[in-house]
Amino acid sequence: MVLDLLASGLVFSSIIVLGSIGLSLIYSIANFANFAHGDTMTVGAYAAFVTFGAVGGLGFGILGLPLGFFVALLVGIVAAAVVAVVTEKIVYDGMNAGSIELLITSIGIAFIYRAIIQMGFGADFTRFDVQTLRPIEALLPYGVRVTLHDVAIVVSAIILVGSLHALLQYTDLGRKMRAMADNPDLARVSGIRTDRVKLWTWIIGAGLAGSGGVFLGLYNQLSPRMGFNLLLLIFAAVILGGIGSVYGAMLGGFLIGVINQLTPVLSDIRFLTEMGAMLPLVPDSFGIVIGIEYANAIAFVIMVAVLLVRPNGIAGEAV
């Protein structure tokens, strides 16, 4: 069972990682906690949903997904990036406000995105019109139930994250972004056009979020609240990894995703459920059962604990 949970943890972490990289990039370069990031994911998911409905399957498929789905994925990424850039240009850019004011503004933006999506598509759950697959036969003997779609999510996430790594390490833009995340003032005096780098940060961050949203829709369902519901988990991942560190966000996203899916293991731990029988002066029936419904709560508690003990995250420098 643990293997199966680990596998679904890997799939879920791929989605969290895609969201958390963008959030971390924007946090470090635009310098505020973007509460609209989750709803940017929703924008990407619904853009892909519309595109997929329009272009259809387009013949042959890869990993159980028709080619049209990948076209839709691309559209989702572009749509999320465009929406984010337009928002940045119209709203955040001219504000000249502190990070707190920007944070509160981004909540308003999140509401606007969600409201518009809900007006267009209703509050109900929808699904991508792809065939639901059976778990891969070869892995069933090990108790692992993953579908080809899950594999597609993980592979696509690895490709996207890998190309971001290449971009950050080997291109001019990547070096500028890292410089700016490190010290914006220093970056500016050394002649980096910080405005342009900031714009690219929004494009990359929101684009990755859009792809995360599309995969989330494929993994679960689409609903106007899907992104906002995931937002706190993504924050937990970013904080666990250390704000501003892209590689930390990857690691944090991976850990949060796996921990989230591993929650059923906790309710099986004998010590927790039979605490009363082991401790004196406590009724025998007493025990803490941490069920699957507390999966998110565990992540939030981890987040607060990390903020207290190591505010710079596991990948950041210790205080």
Partner: peptide
């Protein structure tokens, strides 16, 4: 038929406009 999202939209626009023009 869209009262709930309209309320959201109104709240969202209110937040953005306030923070932008009259913080």
């Amino acid at each position: 038929s869209n009262v709930a999202p309209l309320r959201f939209l109104l709240i969202g626009v209110l937040i953005v406009v306030l923070m932008r023009y009259r913080p």
